[in-house]
Design a protein around this nucleic acid. Sequence first.
DNA 1: TTTTTTTGGTATATTATTGGTTTATCGTGG
DNA 2: CCACGATAAACCAATAATATACCAAAAAAA
Lengths: 226, 226
Amino acid sequence: MLTSRRGAAEIASIIRREIEQGRLAAQERLPAERTMAETYAVARGTIREAIGRLAEEGLVEVRRGSGAYVRAENAQQLNPVIQQARPLELIDARFALEPHICRLAVLHARDGDLERTEALLARMEAAAHDPSEFAAADTVFHTVLAELTGNNLLVWIINQINSVRSQEQWSRMLLMTNTPDMIRTYNQQHRQIVDAIRSRDSEAAATAMKSHLESARLALMRAASA
Amino acid sequence: MLTSRRGAAEIASIIRREIEQGRLAAQERLPAERTMAETYAVARGTIREAIGRLAEEGLVEVRRGSGAYVRAENAQQLNPVIQQARPLELIDARFALEPHICRLAVLHARDGDLERTEALLARMEAAAHDPSEFAAADTVFHTVLAELTGNNLLVWIINQINSVRSQEQWSRMLLMTNTPDMIRTYNQQHRQIVDAIRSRDSEAAATAMKSHLESARLALMRAASA
DNA sequence: TTTTTTTGGTATATTATTGGTTTATCGTGG
DNA sequence: CCACGATAAACCAATAATATACCAAAAAAA
Protein backbone atom coordinates (compact mmCIF):
# COMPACT_ATOMS: atom_id res chain seq x y z
CA MET A 1 0.00 0.00 0.00
CA LEU A 2 1.61 3.18 -1.14
CA THR A 3 0.63 6.45 0.38
CA SER A 4 0.59 9.63 -1.62
CA ARG A 5 2.10 11.68 1.15
CA ARG A 6 5.82 10.96 1.17
CA GLY A 7 6.43 11.85 4.74
CA ALA A 8 9.42 12.00 6.99
CA ALA A 9 8.59 8.50 8.18
CA GLU A 10 8.99 7.07 4.72
CA ILE A 11 12.25 8.90 4.11
CA ALA A 12 13.50 7.63 7.46
CA SER A 13 12.66 4.08 6.46
CA ILE A 14 14.53 4.48 3.20
CA ILE A 15 17.67 5.76 4.88
CA ARG A 16 17.40 3.17 7.62
CA ARG A 17 17.25 0.44 5.02
CA GLU A 18 20.27 1.88 3.23
CA ILE A 19 22.24 1.75 6.45
CA GLU A 20 21.11 -1.70 7.50
CA GLN A 21 21.81 -3.17 4.11
CA GLY A 22 25.32 -1.89 4.42
CA ARG A 23 25.09 0.43 1.46
CA LEU A 24 26.34 3.09 3.81
CA ALA A 25 29.33 1.86 5.74
CA ALA A 26 30.09 2.59 9.36
CA GLN A 27 31.52 6.00 10.12
CA GLU A 28 30.53 7.09 6.67
CA ARG A 29 28.88 10.45 6.21
CA LEU A 30 25.38 10.67 4.83
CA PRO A 31 24.83 13.03 1.92
CA ALA A 32 24.16 16.61 2.92
CA GLU A 33 20.59 17.45 3.90
CA ARG A 34 20.19 19.73 0.91
CA THR A 35 21.49 17.01 -1.41
CA MET A 36 19.16 14.37 -0.03
CA ALA A 37 16.27 16.78 -0.26
CA GLU A 38 16.93 17.03 -3.95
CA THR A 39 17.51 13.34 -4.60
CA TYR A 40 14.31 12.35 -2.82
CA ALA A 41 12.44 15.33 -4.27
CA VAL A 42 11.39 16.48 -0.84
CA ALA A 43 11.85 19.58 1.30
CA ARG A 44 14.88 19.89 3.48
CA GLY A 45 12.70 20.07 6.58
CA THR A 46 11.38 16.61 5.80
CA ILE A 47 14.91 15.27 5.52
CA ARG A 48 15.79 16.88 8.81
CA GLU A 49 12.76 15.32 10.44
CA ALA A 50 13.75 11.89 9.10
CA ILE A 51 17.38 12.21 10.18
CA GLY A 52 16.18 13.42 13.57
CA ARG A 53 14.28 10.19 14.08
CA LEU A 54 17.28 8.11 13.05
CA ALA A 55 19.38 10.09 15.51
CA GLU A 56 16.84 9.36 18.26
CA GLU A 57 17.11 5.68 17.41
CA GLY A 58 20.86 6.03 17.76
CA LEU A 59 21.43 4.91 14.22
CA VAL A 60 23.20 8.08 13.14
CA GLU A 61 25.04 10.92 14.80
CA VAL A 62 24.71 14.45 13.44
CA ARG A 63 27.53 16.99 13.78
CA ARG A 64 26.72 20.58 13.12
CA GLY A 65 28.65 22.03 10.21
CA SER A 66 29.95 18.61 9.31
CA GLY A 67 27.22 16.12 8.52
CA ALA A 68 25.36 13.05 9.70
CA TYR A 69 27.41 9.93 10.31
CA VAL A 70 26.47 6.27 10.60
CA ARG A 71 27.23 5.16 14.12
CA ALA A 72 29.76 2.36 14.05
CA GLU A 73 28.06 0.03 16.49
CA ASN A 74 24.86 0.04 14.45
CA ALA A 75 26.23 -0.40 10.97
CA GLN A 76 26.55 -4.16 11.23
CA GLN A 77 23.77 -4.49 13.72
CA LEU A 78 21.35 -6.40 11.58
CA ASN A 79 21.96 -10.09 11.06
CA PRO A 80 24.92 -10.28 13.40
CA VAL A 81 24.97 -14.03 12.83
CA ILE A 82 25.73 -13.60 9.17
CA GLN A 83 28.22 -10.82 9.68
CA GLN A 84 30.12 -12.87 12.25
CA ALA A 85 30.00 -16.07 10.26
CA ARG A 86 33.39 -17.52 9.56
CA PRO A 87 34.43 -18.24 5.98
CA LEU A 88 34.33 -21.99 6.51
CA GLU A 89 30.84 -21.76 7.97
CA LEU A 90 29.76 -19.95 4.85
CA ILE A 91 31.28 -22.58 2.61
CA ASP A 92 29.51 -25.33 4.55
CA ALA A 93 26.23 -23.52 4.19
CA ARG A 94 26.83 -23.21 0.47
CA PHE A 95 27.62 -26.93 0.36
CA ALA A 96 24.24 -27.57 1.87
CA LEU A 97 22.31 -25.23 -0.38
CA GLU A 98 23.83 -24.89 -3.79
CA PRO A 99 24.03 -28.47 -5.05
CA HIS A 100 20.33 -28.87 -4.36
CA ILE A 101 19.67 -25.46 -5.89
CA CYS A 102 21.24 -26.84 -9.05
CA ARG A 103 18.85 -29.79 -8.99
CA LEU A 104 15.87 -27.51 -8.51
CA ALA A 105 17.16 -25.24 -11.28
CA VAL A 106 17.11 -28.19 -13.65
CA LEU A 107 13.51 -28.87 -12.68
CA HIS A 108 12.23 -25.31 -12.88
CA ALA A 109 14.40 -23.30 -15.25
CA ARG A 110 12.90 -22.43 -18.59
CA ASP A 111 15.08 -22.30 -21.67
CA GLY A 112 15.20 -18.53 -21.91
CA ASP A 113 16.29 -18.21 -18.30
CA LEU A 114 19.75 -19.53 -19.03
CA GLU A 115 20.63 -16.56 -21.22
CA ARG A 116 21.39 -14.48 -18.16
CA THR A 117 23.88 -17.06 -16.97
CA GLU A 118 25.60 -17.00 -20.37
CA ALA A 119 26.16 -13.26 -20.11
CA LEU A 120 27.58 -13.73 -16.63
CA LEU A 121 29.89 -16.52 -17.76
CA ALA A 122 31.25 -14.22 -20.46
CA ARG A 123 31.69 -11.43 -17.95
CA MET A 124 33.61 -13.68 -15.57
CA GLU A 125 35.79 -15.12 -18.32
CA ALA A 126 36.74 -11.59 -19.31
CA ALA A 127 37.73 -10.80 -15.73
CA ALA A 128 40.59 -13.28 -15.33
CA HIS A 129 42.89 -10.48 -14.19
CA ASP A 130 40.35 -8.44 -12.22
CA PRO A 131 39.57 -10.27 -8.95
CA SER A 132 37.04 -7.66 -7.79
CA GLU A 133 35.11 -7.72 -11.03
CA PHE A 134 35.18 -11.52 -11.02
CA ALA A 135 33.92 -11.67 -7.45
CA ALA A 136 31.08 -9.28 -8.24
CA ALA A 137 29.97 -11.31 -11.25
CA ASP A 138 30.40 -14.55 -9.30
CA THR A 139 28.04 -13.30 -6.61
CA VAL A 140 25.41 -12.46 -9.20
CA PHE A 141 25.95 -15.83 -10.87
CA HIS A 142 25.11 -17.77 -7.74
CA THR A 143 22.10 -15.55 -7.11
CA VAL A 144 20.83 -16.16 -10.63
CA LEU A 145 21.16 -19.92 -10.10
CA ALA A 146 18.93 -19.55 -7.07
CA GLU A 147 16.48 -17.49 -9.09
CA LEU A 148 16.29 -20.27 -11.65
CA THR A 149 14.61 -22.42 -9.02
CA GLY A 150 11.71 -19.98 -8.83
CA ASN A 151 11.93 -20.34 -5.05
CA ASN A 152 11.99 -16.90 -3.45
CA LEU A 153 12.96 -18.31 -0.11
CA LEU A 154 16.12 -19.84 -1.53
CA VAL A 155 16.92 -16.60 -3.35
CA TRP A 156 16.59 -14.73 -0.10
CA ILE A 157 18.86 -17.15 1.77
CA ILE A 158 21.53 -16.94 -0.94
CA ASN A 159 21.32 -13.16 -0.88
CA GLN A 160 21.81 -13.19 2.87
CA ILE A 161 24.88 -15.36 2.48
CA ASN A 162 26.18 -13.20 -0.34
CA SER A 163 25.78 -10.07 1.73
CA VAL A 164 28.76 -11.06 3.81
CA ARG A 165 31.02 -10.60 0.84
CA SER A 166 30.96 -6.87 1.33
CA GLN A 167 32.73 -7.52 4.58
CA GLU A 168 36.30 -6.36 4.76
CA GLN A 169 37.84 -9.63 5.90
CA TRP A 170 36.05 -11.48 3.17
CA SER A 171 37.12 -9.03 0.47
CA ARG A 172 40.77 -9.45 1.36
CA MET A 173 40.37 -13.21 1.32
CA LEU A 174 38.85 -13.06 -2.14
CA LEU A 175 41.69 -10.96 -3.49
CA MET A 176 44.14 -13.54 -2.16
CA THR A 177 42.37 -16.60 -3.51
CA ASN A 178 41.15 -15.25 -6.82
CA THR A 179 44.36 -15.60 -8.76
CA PRO A 180 44.14 -15.80 -12.58
CA ASP A 181 44.70 -19.56 -12.32
CA MET A 182 41.90 -20.05 -9.81
CA ILE A 183 39.58 -17.82 -11.82
CA ARG A 184 40.24 -19.99 -14.85
CA THR A 185 39.38 -23.09 -12.83
CA TYR A 186 36.24 -21.49 -11.46
CA ASN A 187 35.13 -20.45 -14.92
CA GLN A 188 35.47 -24.00 -16.21
CA GLN A 189 33.40 -25.24 -13.29
CA HIS A 190 30.79 -22.57 -13.80
CA ARG A 191 30.43 -23.63 -17.39
CA GLN A 192 30.09 -27.29 -16.38
CA ILE A 193 27.28 -26.30 -14.05
CA VAL A 194 25.42 -24.33 -16.70
CA ASP A 195 25.91 -27.05 -19.29
CA ALA A 196 24.53 -29.67 -16.93
CA ILE A 197 21.48 -27.52 -16.21
CA ARG A 198 20.98 -26.92 -19.90
CA SER A 199 21.04 -30.65 -20.64
CA ARG A 200 18.60 -31.23 -17.76
CA ASP A 201 20.97 -33.50 -15.87
CA SER A 202 20.26 -32.61 -12.27
CA GLU A 203 22.79 -34.94 -10.65
CA ALA A 204 25.55 -33.77 -12.99
CA ALA A 205 24.70 -30.17 -12.10
CA ALA A 206 24.78 -30.95 -8.40
CA THR A 207 28.07 -32.81 -8.73
CA ALA A 208 29.63 -29.96 -10.71
CA MET A 209 28.56 -27.53 -8.01
CA LYS A 210 30.08 -29.74 -5.32
CA SER A 211 33.39 -29.78 -7.20
CA HIS A 212 33.22 -26.03 -7.52
CA LEU A 213 32.62 -25.53 -3.83
CA GLU A 214 35.36 -28.01 -2.98
CA SER A 215 37.81 -25.94 -5.04
CA ALA A 216 36.70 -22.82 -3.24
CA ARG A 217 37.12 -24.51 0.13
CA LEU A 218 40.63 -25.68 -0.72
CA ALA A 219 41.63 -22.23 -1.92
CA LEU A 220 40.26 -20.77 1.26
CA MET A 221 42.14 -23.16 3.49
CA ARG A 222 45.35 -22.54 1.57
CA ALA A 223 44.88 -18.82 2.05
CA ALA A 224 44.08 -19.24 5.73
CA SER A 225 47.17 -21.30 6.44
CA ALA A 226 49.43 -19.00 4.43
CA MET B 1 -28.02 -8.80 -0.49
CA LEU B 2 -25.67 -7.41 -3.03
CA THR B 3 -22.22 -8.87 -2.72
CA SER B 4 -20.69 -6.09 -4.77
CA ARG B 5 -21.68 -3.59 -2.12
CA ARG B 6 -19.10 -3.89 0.60
CA GLY B 7 -19.91 -2.77 4.08
CA ALA B 8 -17.77 -1.35 6.85
CA ALA B 9 -17.41 -4.74 8.49
CA GLU B 10 -15.88 -6.28 5.41
CA ILE B 11 -13.50 -3.38 4.87
CA ALA B 12 -12.47 -3.65 8.51
CA SER B 13 -11.55 -7.32 8.10
CA ILE B 14 -9.56 -6.56 4.98
CA ILE B 15 -7.48 -3.93 6.73
CA ARG B 16 -7.18 -6.09 9.83
CA ARG B 17 -5.78 -8.92 7.75
CA GLU B 18 -3.33 -6.57 6.06
CA ILE B 19 -2.01 -5.56 9.46
CA GLU B 20 -1.88 -9.04 10.96
CA GLN B 21 -0.11 -10.44 7.93
CA GLY B 22 2.51 -7.78 8.32
CA ARG B 23 1.91 -6.09 5.01
CA LEU B 24 1.76 -2.87 6.99
CA ALA B 25 4.74 -2.44 9.27
CA ALA B 26 4.67 -1.12 12.81
CA GLN B 27 4.26 2.62 13.17
CA GLU B 28 3.49 2.82 9.49
CA ARG B 29 0.73 5.08 8.31
CA LEU B 30 -2.32 3.70 6.61
CA PRO B 31 -3.31 5.32 3.34
CA ALA B 32 -5.51 8.39 3.70
CA GLU B 33 -9.21 7.77 4.13
CA ARG B 34 -9.96 9.35 0.78
CA THR B 35 -7.36 7.16 -0.90
CA MET B 36 -8.65 3.96 0.65
CA ALA B 37 -12.18 4.94 -0.30
CA GLU B 38 -11.05 5.04 -3.90
CA THR B 39 -8.97 1.87 -3.86
CA TYR B 40 -11.77 -0.16 -2.27
CA ALA B 41 -14.41 1.61 -4.39
CA VAL B 42 -16.34 2.61 -1.34
CA ALA B 43 -17.49 5.83 0.28
CA ARG B 44 -15.21 7.63 2.67
CA GLY B 45 -17.74 7.24 5.47
CA THR B 46 -17.50 3.48 5.16
CA ILE B 47 -13.73 3.64 5.48
CA ARG B 48 -14.10 5.85 8.53
CA GLU B 49 -16.51 3.38 10.08
CA ALA B 50 -14.06 0.52 9.43
CA ILE B 51 -11.07 2.39 10.82
CA GLY B 52 -13.15 3.39 13.81
CA ARG B 53 -13.72 -0.24 14.67
CA LEU B 54 -10.03 -1.04 14.31
CA ALA B 55 -9.27 1.87 16.61
CA GLU B 56 -11.75 0.51 19.17
CA GLU B 57 -9.96 -2.81 18.98
CA GLY B 58 -6.72 -0.96 19.64
CA LEU B 59 -5.24 -2.16 16.39
CA VAL B 60 -4.63 1.32 14.99
CA GLU B 61 -4.25 4.80 16.38
CA VAL B 62 -5.82 7.71 14.52
CA ARG B 63 -4.22 11.15 14.63
CA ARG B 64 -6.23 14.06 13.32
CA GLY B 65 -4.54 15.91 10.48
CA SER B 66 -1.94 13.20 10.21
CA GLY B 67 -3.34 9.75 9.57
CA ALA B 68 -4.03 6.34 11.05
CA TYR B 69 -1.04 4.42 12.31
CA VAL B 70 -0.52 0.73 13.02
CA ARG B 71 0.08 0.28 16.72
CA ALA B 72 3.47 -1.24 17.31
CA GLU B 73 2.49 -4.20 19.45
CA ASN B 74 0.14 -5.51 16.77
CA ALA B 75 2.41 -5.37 13.80
CA GLN B 76 4.03 -8.49 12.53
CA GLN B 77 7.75 -7.99 12.41
CA LEU B 78 8.88 -11.14 10.72
CA ASN B 79 10.72 -11.18 7.48
CA PRO B 80 8.25 -10.60 4.66
CA VAL B 81 10.04 -12.97 2.28
CA ILE B 82 9.82 -15.83 4.73
CA GLN B 83 6.32 -14.95 5.72
CA GLN B 84 5.06 -15.06 2.18
CA ALA B 85 6.87 -18.26 1.34
CA ARG B 86 4.62 -21.04 0.17
CA PRO B 87 4.70 -24.38 2.00
CA LEU B 88 6.26 -26.16 -0.96
CA GLU B 89 8.99 -23.53 -1.17
CA LEU B 90 9.76 -24.21 2.46
CA ILE B 91 9.93 -27.94 1.89
CA ASP B 92 12.31 -27.43 -1.03
CA ALA B 93 14.54 -25.27 1.10
CA ARG B 94 14.57 -27.93 3.77
CA PHE B 95 15.45 -30.51 1.14
CA ALA B 96 18.44 -28.39 0.25
CA LEU B 97 19.57 -27.81 3.81
CA GLU B 98 18.72 -30.61 6.13
CA PRO B 99 20.29 -33.68 4.49
CA HIS B 100 23.61 -31.87 4.43
CA ILE B 101 23.02 -30.67 7.96
CA CYS B 102 22.82 -34.34 8.92
CA ARG B 103 26.16 -35.01 7.25
CA LEU B 104 27.75 -32.10 9.07
CA ALA B 105 26.17 -33.24 12.31
CA VAL B 106 27.92 -36.59 11.93
CA LEU B 107 31.19 -34.77 11.44
CA HIS B 108 30.89 -32.32 14.32
CA ALA B 109 28.54 -33.72 16.93
CA ARG B 110 30.10 -34.83 20.17
CA ASP B 111 28.73 -37.83 22.02
CA GLY B 112 27.00 -35.87 24.75
CA ASP B 113 25.23 -33.65 22.25
CA LEU B 114 22.85 -36.39 21.20
CA GLU B 115 21.22 -36.54 24.62
CA ARG B 116 19.11 -33.53 23.79
CA THR B 117 17.76 -35.24 20.71
CA GLU B 118 16.85 -38.28 22.80
CA ALA B 119 14.72 -36.16 25.09
CA LEU B 120 13.01 -34.62 22.09
CA LEU B 121 12.34 -38.00 20.52
CA ALA B 122 10.65 -39.10 23.72
CA ARG B 123 8.61 -35.93 23.83
CA MET B 124 7.43 -36.40 20.26
CA GLU B 125 6.60 -40.05 20.77
CA ALA B 126 4.43 -39.09 23.71
CA ALA B 127 2.57 -36.57 21.57
CA ALA B 128 1.03 -38.93 19.02
CA HIS B 129 -2.41 -37.50 19.73
CA ASP B 130 -1.42 -33.86 20.24
CA PRO B 131 -0.53 -32.32 16.87
CA SER B 132 0.39 -28.92 18.31
CA GLU B 133 2.70 -30.37 20.91
CA PHE B 134 4.26 -32.64 18.30
CA ALA B 135 4.80 -29.70 15.92
CA ALA B 136 6.45 -27.66 18.65
CA ALA B 137 8.83 -30.46 19.58
CA ASP B 138 9.50 -31.20 15.91
CA THR B 139 10.57 -27.60 15.34
CA VAL B 140 13.02 -27.82 18.21
CA PHE B 141 14.28 -31.18 16.96
CA HIS B 142 15.28 -29.79 13.58
CA THR B 143 16.88 -26.79 15.24
CA VAL B 144 18.93 -29.05 17.50
CA LEU B 145 20.13 -31.02 14.48
CA ALA B 146 21.40 -27.75 13.02
CA GLU B 147 23.08 -26.93 16.31
CA LEU B 148 24.91 -30.26 16.19
CA THR B 149 26.82 -28.97 13.17
CA GLY B 150 28.35 -26.20 15.26
CA ASN B 151 27.58 -23.87 12.36
CA ASN B 152 25.78 -20.80 13.65
CA LEU B 153 24.90 -19.67 10.15
CA LEU B 154 22.99 -22.89 9.50
CA VAL B 155 21.27 -22.62 12.86
CA TRP B 156 20.17 -19.12 11.98
CA ILE B 157 18.83 -20.17 8.60
CA ILE B 158 16.86 -23.06 10.10
CA ASN B 159 15.44 -20.77 12.73
CA GLN B 160 14.34 -18.34 10.06
CA ILE B 161 12.60 -21.14 8.21
CA ASN B 162 11.03 -22.43 11.39
CA SER B 163 9.63 -19.03 12.22
CA VAL B 164 7.07 -19.40 9.50
CA ARG B 165 5.30 -22.10 11.45
CA SER B 166 3.60 -19.50 13.56
CA GLN B 167 1.79 -18.44 10.43
CA GLU B 168 -1.93 -19.10 10.36
CA GLN B 169 -1.99 -20.95 7.06
CA TRP B 170 0.86 -23.17 8.18
CA SER B 171 -0.74 -23.98 11.51
CA ARG B 172 -3.90 -25.20 9.86
CA MET B 173 -1.84 -27.26 7.45
CA LEU B 174 0.02 -28.89 10.33
CA LEU B 175 -3.16 -29.81 12.14
CA MET B 176 -4.43 -31.46 8.96
CA THR B 177 -1.27 -33.41 8.18
CA ASN B 178 -0.20 -34.40 11.66
CA THR B 179 -2.53 -37.31 12.13
CA PRO B 180 -1.57 -39.97 14.69
CA ASP B 181 -0.51 -42.22 11.81
CA MET B 182 1.74 -39.58 10.27
CA ILE B 183 3.20 -38.71 13.65
CA ARG B 184 4.10 -42.36 14.14
CA THR B 185 5.80 -42.40 10.74
CA TYR B 186 7.66 -39.18 11.51
CA ASN B 187 8.83 -40.52 14.84
CA GLN B 188 10.28 -43.64 13.22
CA GLN B 189 12.11 -41.47 10.70
CA HIS B 190 13.39 -39.16 13.40
CA ARG B 191 14.83 -42.11 15.23
CA GLN B 192 16.49 -43.41 12.06
CA ILE B 193 18.14 -40.02 11.65
CA VAL B 194 19.43 -39.92 15.19
CA ASP B 195 20.64 -43.53 15.02
CA ALA B 196 22.55 -42.81 11.81
CA ILE B 197 24.21 -39.79 13.37
CA ARG B 198 25.09 -41.78 16.45
CA SER B 199 26.73 -44.50 14.36
CA ARG B 200 28.62 -41.81 12.42
CA ASP B 201 27.13 -42.83 9.09
CA SER B 202 26.72 -39.51 7.32
CA GLU B 203 25.14 -40.81 4.12
CA ALA B 204 22.62 -42.92 6.04
CA ALA B 205 21.72 -39.85 8.08
CA ALA B 206 21.28 -37.73 4.95
CA THR B 207 19.19 -40.46 3.30
CA ALA B 208 16.97 -40.84 6.35
CA MET B 209 16.40 -37.09 6.36
CA LYS B 210 15.48 -37.13 2.68
CA SER B 211 12.91 -39.86 3.34
CA HIS B 212 11.53 -37.84 6.19
CA LEU B 213 11.19 -34.70 4.08
CA GLU B 214 9.64 -36.70 1.27
CA SER B 215 6.98 -37.97 3.67
CA ALA B 216 6.31 -34.43 4.80
CA ARG B 217 6.03 -33.22 1.22
CA LEU B 218 3.57 -35.99 0.33
CA ALA B 219 1.44 -35.23 3.36
CA LEU B 220 1.47 -31.57 2.41
CA MET B 221 0.39 -32.22 -1.15
CA ARG B 222 -2.35 -34.56 0.00
CA ALA B 223 -3.62 -31.86 2.33
CA ALA B 224 -3.37 -29.20 -0.35
CA SER B 225 -5.37 -31.19 -2.88
CA ALA B 226 -8.00 -32.22 -0.35
C1' DT C 1 47.14 31.93 9.03
C1' DT C 2 42.75 34.16 6.69
C1' DT C 3 39.02 33.56 3.57
C1' DT C 4 35.57 30.97 1.38
C1' DT C 5 32.56 27.22 1.05
C1' DT C 6 29.88 23.72 2.92
C1' DT C 7 27.09 21.95 6.49
C1' DG C 8 23.73 21.59 10.11
C1' DG C 9 20.39 24.66 13.15
C1' DT C 10 16.54 27.71 13.36
C1' DA C 11 12.60 30.45 12.27
C1' DT C 12 8.48 31.64 9.57
C1' DA C 13 4.85 32.17 6.32
C1' DT C 14 2.47 29.41 2.97
C1' DT C 15 0.49 25.43 0.86
C1' DA C 16 -1.23 20.79 0.77
C1' DT C 17 -2.99 16.89 2.98
C1' DT C 18 -5.58 14.57 6.45
C1' DG C 19 -9.02 13.42 9.86
C1' DG C 20 -13.59 15.35 11.84
C1' DT C 21 -18.22 16.84 11.02
C1' DT C 22 -22.49 17.86 8.98
C1' DT C 23 -26.06 17.48 5.60
C1' DA C 24 -28.83 15.64 1.90
C1' DT C 25 -29.77 11.71 -0.89
C1' DC C 26 -30.34 6.99 -2.54
C1' DG C 27 -31.51 1.87 -1.98
C1' DT C 28 -32.43 -2.04 0.36
C1' DG C 29 -34.77 -4.85 3.63
C1' DG C 30 -38.11 -5.26 7.29
C1' DC D 1 -44.43 2.90 4.61
C1' DC D 2 -40.05 3.38 7.80
C1' DA D 3 -35.28 2.47 9.42
C1' DC D 4 -30.77 1.90 8.41
C1' DG D 5 -26.62 1.88 6.03
C1' DA D 6 -24.07 3.54 2.29
C1' DT D 7 -23.19 7.47 -0.80
C1' DA D 8 -21.87 12.05 -2.04
C1' DA D 9 -20.57 16.67 -1.30
C1' DA D 10 -19.13 20.41 1.26
C1' DC D 11 -16.69 22.56 4.88
C1' DC D 12 -13.73 22.83 9.31
C1' DA D 13 -9.55 22.13 12.07
C1' DA D 14 -5.20 19.95 12.90
C1' DT D 15 -1.03 18.53 11.04
C1' DA D 16 2.55 17.88 7.76
C1' DA D 17 5.32 19.47 4.16
C1' DT D 18 7.13 23.32 1.37
C1' DA D 19 9.83 27.29 0.35
C1' DT D 20 12.80 30.72 1.89
C1' DA D 21 15.92 33.16 4.54
C1' DC D 22 19.47 33.65 7.73
C1' DC D 23 22.77 32.02 11.48
C1' DA D 24 26.74 29.42 13.34
C1' DA D 25 29.98 25.76 13.25
C1' DA D 26 33.00 23.03 10.73
C1' DA D 27 35.69 22.04 6.72
C1' DA D 28 38.15 23.34 2.71
C1' DA D 29 40.74 26.52 0.09
C1' DA D 30 43.61 30.40 -0.50
